[in-house]
Amino acid sequence: MLGPVDYALWIAGFVFEAAAVLSIFYRKAFGRYYSVCLYMACKFFVQGAQYICFLKFGFRSAQYFYLYYYSDSLLTILLFFVVMHLYLLVFAEMDTDRHIRAGAVLLLFLTAAFSYLVVRRYRTHLTEHFVVELGQGLYFVGTVLTYILWGAMITLRERRARLVQVVLALGIYYSATAGAYALQDLFPGRQMPVFAWAPPAANVWLSLAWTLAFLRIREEASVMVPTLAVKAQ
């Protein structure tokens, strides 16, 4: 049964996803950040579809279960393309497009292989544990990719403030969700609120942080990334 917190997170996610798309258009940033905009638009429509499914079949129905977890996995793979696009933006001046595209194809192949192995392992019983393991793996790959991207941004002394905030917000989203799925995998069968609230709360965070990044930070605004490095004096 859904409680007020679940509904609040759902509504907030829905509103901020729309706000993120609108803010990208409002700041005329679609050309540069089209992948972010498409991802947020897809997320918005998927959440709409999930709500219709929830109303029609109920929260505990198999239809809602499969729609929720499979659409979540597909959206995670779509988010990989956002990460790849962010790589392209970071390495735009280094003529590395071909390598990044090859990396994206390799990543897609590895993700497909990983998903196949997980599905094969659970093919006789596609249970909740299967979707948790799949989600945990996919989000963890996203965490690693974003971490590598952030490392590259520090090395290259990336100064674009908006890009810095977009990548950092994505890193928080990926690592928080991967951690929540891993915790769920560690304690299977336990109905703790953190398991149910962490992924939608991370989704609210991502859409809100991206909305603020587009609304409040101008494209030409710069930030000194080296000053962000944590150094004990």
């Binding site: 989000y139 963890f140 965490t143 974003t146 971490y147 952030w150 905030q165 950092l168 917000a169 890193g171 928080i172 690592s175 928080a176 991967a178 951690g179 891993a182 942080a209 000053t227 962000l228 944590v230």
Partner: peptide, 14 residues
């Protein structure tokens, strides 16, 4: 994930 989350959060705040 937890260690990376803390790092990303610190960088974001900074």
């Amino acid at each position: 994930s937890f260690v990376v989350l803390v790092q990303f959060f610190v960088y974001y705040c900074r």
